[in-house]
Design a protein around this nucleic acid. Structure first.
Lengths: 214, 214, 214, 214
DNA sequence: CATGAATGAGTCTTCATTCAT
DNA sequence: AATGAATGAAGACTCATTCAT
């Protein structure tokens, strides 16, 4: 999956980084409030702290901003996940703490995740697969944990079951963000983590027991 | 939750129904392809089979079309669910068939569900809560089944666990639609139903056993 | 000055009269509030008590309504003036009472006069001269009085002076309507009549005296 | 009476002045021909020498153009009046020359005055009082002259008579513009000035004489 | 590199007018 | 004669993008 580069007429790489950081920061807060389509490039420039002309020195099209934002969000989520998750550990406890860590990241980055969800479709045809691929990579982190657990006979799951379960964990984490209107009045994030973890593990341990029974 | 009425300058209720049916049908297919914001009112009119002037005889603002569409989708999903689900049955089998029915509706209406997901934010401030409420009603159908199962001692779940589980079922069903890019190459809808049902039930039966153990 | 006929597809002359009366009544009140351009044909139809389709049975273009309205206002003003003014009398007292009568009509029909003033320009090219001619006829009523007074040696004014003076009387009467925002807080209509009459007469009596001096 | 500012997204005040000058110039000539409502924003932009986009950099709504135009006309009339009228002089001759000057301005700016008259109603609710106030200020210039004349015993008029007379002068001046269809074929502007001045003065001198008689 | 004025294609929405019933 | 649904041309306004300074 080749990287999708956003063209900039500015040469100084360091400056590009600085300006795009400003831009992303400004844009995220705007996208949260009004969505991508209702946000104007002028607003983005203003929120970024520079002029519309300067904005276009660092991007080519408005959609580039969306891509940059979404890309950044993924990177951030992934970064924070990697910090917290040691995929090497193939134990039940390891999985539990990975889930907890991931859910907490989702809690911290609710708005960002919501933005991704609702605006992903507006990405250009060529940016979308790249972004979806990033998402798959994150799902794969959970797959990796589950695979290792299987290898270490902690659980007994087929390849397919692992894939599905990893997707479930991923989506259930996001759900905390995109269904907050329903969930947040019913659960604290800690409750949510505990209960979901328990439900997820039930789906695994059973199989392990089944395996034992044979 | 008061109904959100969309104003029409046409008096004949029957005609309003006919035209709005055309409109919704045309709009859904456009929203699927390009999203709400990238669809113009003229395109909607054309896809509906009438002129832009006529379109505006049946709505006031472009956003009304979105509301009409989303509202219709919910109603359709709900209708199809009610056909298939007999909430009265409080057995494991009843739950299984309810999940299967729901997942199949989600499979049939993937595009529609996707539209709802991605464009809901563009609904007017007053339409959104109304729509979210409809969603809650659907979640409640699963809650009802689980409650009855608990009452009939089929399972042992707390109020909160039931609520969370119902949300999970709901979201996992939608997931088949909004993550199709990842799931459809891995699973057939039947596989998906079987495996998810199994995972969901594990979360319940375990507790039932726990209950037994006491 | 040939009459400007407004075409109607309805044959029954009596019905045309009835419908147009409704139409004019409704339209005047709308034009007062929002002006001709901001009033829609639908609103006119509604205010007239019939449908848009029926409206167009009695006119051809929206501008016809304006013409009908303006025409009616002139007729009404003229009618009321003729009732009150006996142009035959060529005395100072006769002039005074004519002025008073005219000013009172202007007071009664302020809104209508305002409408005429502000919307006259929107009349069709062929309707305008016809309407302006009606206005001239009204000015002429004052000219006639002044001429008769001159003939009877009540005053001594040249033809030109008479024309100008007649215009002045006419405009000063309208002024009560179109400058009400300034005048009505300063004068009652009676004050206004008294003071203006006095000023106008000063313009005449002087000349009369001058005439005497010769 | 607080000033009514028209918002511009352009920062450079000098440029705003330049562009608005162009805009006003273009708009006046269009409004003269077809009135405010029949003039499109595109036409205004074109007549101003720039694009529709640029037009909207300097105003927010079409009505702003009208306000700008009307405001400018008042300022211009006032400016030219102040040049010509020395309100300090409280003599008959001073009044005569003030009237003459004012009437000549009205002659020069006939079209503009007509525009004001016919389109004033289309001004926004908040702009209208501001504009009317400007008009009052101009009336006041004549009041001031008359007051001074009274103070200097040139004439004897009550406060109310002065106010009314000032209004009359003002309206009679405008009348030259808005009744040109009737007046211009009968009088030259010089005739008009002479005759009206004479009529107006008759209204004053008489009173002065009356004062003398007592 | 930064700025922000200029551009005009594109969008929503209105409304006068028509015409089948 | 009356109705009101249908039409689409036209208009106000927006906003992504460019480019001269």
């Amino acid at each position: 999956m080749k990287n999708v580069e956003v063209h900039s007429s500015v040469k100084d790489e360091r400056l590009i980084k600085v300006r795009r950081d400003q831009m992303i920061k400004g844009a995220v807060s705007l996208f949260k409030q009004k969505g991508f389509h209702r946000t104007t490039t002028r607003e983005i420039a203003k929120a970024s702290g520079f002029s519309i002309g300067t904005l276009y020195e660092y991007i080519e099209k408005k959609e580039d901003v969306l891509y940059l934002v979404v890309d950044r969000i993924y990177d951030e989520v992934k970064e924070r996940l990697k910090e917290s998750i040691d995929t090497a550990i193939g134990t039940i406890e390891g999985l539990k703490s990975a889930i907890a860590a991931y859910f907490r990241v989702m809690d911290d980055m609710q708005d960002e995740v919501l933005v991704m969800y609702q605006e992903a479709k507006s990405l250009t045809k060529d940016a979308l697969p790249y972004v979806l691929n990033k998402e798959l990579q994150m799902v794969q982190m959970f797959e990796d944990i589950l695979k290792r657990m299987t290898k270490q006979k902690e659980i007994a799951m087929s390849e397919k079951e692992i894939q599905l379960c990893a997707h479930n964990i991923f989506v259930l984490g996001q759900m905390w963000g995109f269904r907050r209107w329903a969930l947040h009045s019913m659960f604290s994030i800690e409750d949510y983590i505990d209960m979901q973890t328990s439900l997820i593990l039930d789906g695994l341990t059973i199989r392990e027991k089944k395996g034992d029974e044979k």
